[in-house]
């Protein structure tokens, strides 16, 4: 009985994640508009954009390689595949031993393949966007990997659910979670780290040659990626606490589900608000910042290794 509920919650969570992520993007745009004394677009604007893009024709430059075309679809598929593997307040019955590694692969892989596809367009702006993205990606994913390694080390398990269920409150996990949360912000390419698109500099960077349906896939996978990353960091940071407070009874699971969803939406909205107050930085500064950030997961790793 309980396990059916777990399954339902996980699937429900994935579906909500899929539909809500673009909506949250709409909320962000609305908030940004409010900060700028504007009215702003309707909340469902991002969905409208995607719906429109799906109905437009796609232009493919002759210089493009096949990867250019399949990359957005693959990236989207990877992000969607990552959704049901996450922890939605209930033990994830769909999970398996080693799923944490798979999530890591999917998260890193999707943004990697998207930029590879862009680079395959042969456009110089896309090339610059790609090189920036790769340098940023390497720095960011190191932080992600180290944080996850902390979790694995702390609990000795390779399954996300078990990691969460076993942890309890541990300083090392909290630090790792915070590091993940910050890196999520950087990696979701928001200002001041919106370097790979940077419209005034490289006019949309990695997305420059995409149009129509391909652009819709790319956008959607970009937005989903934000959601996946956010939820993943919250899983590490807050989920253990929720489990401690509410347990795994029916009510407890439902409560943690709702709270987790709300918090992740809230985090995304706060990110949107922060973004509207920032300016773009330069790639060298961004890399230095990310390198400094590396201290956090290293500390957490050390803490975890001595068992705190």
């Amino acid at each position: 009985m309980l396990s059916i509920l777990y399954v339902i919650l996980t699937i429900l969570g994935s579906i909500i994640g899929f539909t809500v992520a673009p909506l949250v993007d709409g909320i962000e745009r609305k908030i940004r508009a409010k900060i700028q004394n504007r009215i702003g677009p309707p909340l469902i604007q991002t969905w409208l954009d995607i719906a429109k893009l799906l109905r437009k024709e796609s232009l493919i430059p002759r210089t493009a390689k096949a990867l250019f075309i399949i990359a957005p679809a693959i990236a989207l598929a990877m992000n969607i595949a990552a959704l049901p593997l996450l922890y939605y307040g209930a033990p994830n019955v769909l999970g398996f031993y080693g799923d944490i590694i798979l999530i890591l692969y999917l998260v890193v892989g999707s943004s990697l393949i998207l930029s590879l596809g862009a680079a395959a367009s042969g456009n110089p702006y896309a090339t610059i966007g790609f090189s920036r993205k790769i340098s940023l990606l390497i720095a960011c994913e190191l932080v992600v990997a180290l944080s996850i390694a902390t979790a694995i080390l702390k609990t000795g398990s390779l399954s996300l659910t078990e990691v969460i269920l076993r942890t309890g409150i541990a300083p090392s996990m909290i630090i790792a979670g915070i590091a993940l949360l910050i890196v999520t912000y950087i990696e979701s390419l928001r200002l001041p780290f919106e370097l790979t698109e940077a419209k005034p500099e490289i006019m949309g960077g990695i997305f420059v040659e995409y149009s129509g349906r391909l652009l819709a896939f790319a956008e959607l996978s970009h937005i989903l990626h934000r959601f996946v990353m956010t939820l993943l960091s919250l899983d590490i940071l807050i989920a253990p606490l929720l489990k401690l407070v509410f347990g795994v009874s029916i009510m407890g699971v439902l409560m943690s589900f709702i709270i987790l969803m709300l918090i992740s939406i809230l985090v995304l909205i706060v990110y949107g608000a922060i973004e509207s107050l920032c300016g773009r930085t330069r790639i060298d500064r961004a890399l230095i910042f990310t390198a400094r950030l590396m201290i956090l997961p290293i500390i957490s790793l050390i803490l975890a290794s001595i068992g705190v």
Partner: peptide
């Protein structure tokens, strides 16, 4: 203009138009 730089690489229609996913397969 704010959005200022554009790159028009296609000298003489140098691009393919695709409107459906099916034709992607052919392209690949």
């Amino acid at each position: 203009c704010t959005d200022r730089c554009i790159l028009i690489k296609d000298l003489d229609h140098n691009y393919v138009k695709r409107t459906s996913l099916l034709s992607f397969r052919k392209f690949i």
